[in-house]
Design a protein around this nucleic acid. Structure first.
Lengths: 153, 153
DNA sequence: TATAGAATTGACGTAAACGTAAAAGGTGCG
DNA sequence: CGCACCTTTTACGTTTACGTCAATTCTATA
């Protein structure tokens, strides 16, 4: 099993496998590549979201892992919990049509979309309330500025 | 010190103090009135946001406490942390102009408003990404529905 | 007086997604 | 050889705003 040394990988970052069909990266590279921490990758693995191979105790990530990580990050971006992401991923079957998986994903997505829209409404509410309060405070301050210019502590 | 019995208070919910200038309510009423739990009120007190009087060990809330609670709830609604709320409230001085308090509140509000707007942007981003994904998934499902109508598990 | 309904303090639990040591093993390089 | 650097596992810490007992006491009412 041949790996890429840190130096090589840094210089040769065009991911074209020379001859072998598998390209492995260790955790440090993986983390850098996707802007996550080592802790995060180990955490995802601990939660069953990733399953890198091992060379002894060293984790080796393949492009399969990369694809999965991308999905995880997309999921997190749109607000899914890791549990949700796992549920959806667990249904993936490379030999099937994955209809079940897609349906679940769609179902969860609809719910998540609703949550997001509700959140947006709440935030807009908050923005309005806050803006109103600010207007009032500004008025109070300007009224208070005229009467007495000193001892404002 | 005369209090209002639960029965009386329930029946006589028009908050007009008969003769005395002070009206006390206990924690249960206070909670019901503002839609919070007992735990919440105790928690706020523990954090120094409320300071009800005591009759022995029983908490007695006055309208001052009610005013403060209203402010707390407004603060939470617009996304301030309890710490922020406390900082602002701690500056309140009934004998002064409260310029300092108002300035702090305005300052914090501006920052909070910025945060809220950023959040809204993030959520809208998420909504868009999610919608796109959903469109794709729907396509995949519809493509997959035609070829084979059976064994979709 | 018995009993139900409030109230008290204390303290651990929760949720999510990691952060942050700590202690130790492996590896390439000069 | 020895140092620097990467990696490993284990496990407690962080954050916020409470929830949820538990054990006890107080009060009102029938």
């Amino acid at each position: 099993m041949k790996l890429v040394s840190p130096g090589e990988a840094a210089a040769n970052s065009n991911d074209i496998p020379a001859e072998t069909g598998e390209e492995f990266v260790r955790i440090g590279e993986m983390a850098k590549k996707y802007g996550v921490t080592l802790r995060t990758l180990r955490f995802y693995e601990d939660k069953g979201l990733l399953n890198p191979k091992r060379d002894g105790s060293t984790r080796l990530y393949t492009r399969r892992d990369k694809a999965r990580l991308k999905l995880i990050l997309l999921g997190r971006k749109v607000g899914f919990s890791l549990r949700d992401v796992k549920q959806m991923m667990d249904l993936y079957d490379p030999t099937g049509s994955n209809t079940k998986q897609l349906r679940l994903a769609l179902d969860k997505s609809e719910k998540q979309l609703a949550r997001l829209q509700k959140q947006r409404a709440l935030i807009e509410d908050a923005i309005n309330e806050l803006s109103n309060s600010m207007t009032i405070v500004r008025k109070m301050l300007s009224e208070r500025a005229a009467p007495q210019a000193s001892a404002a502590g």
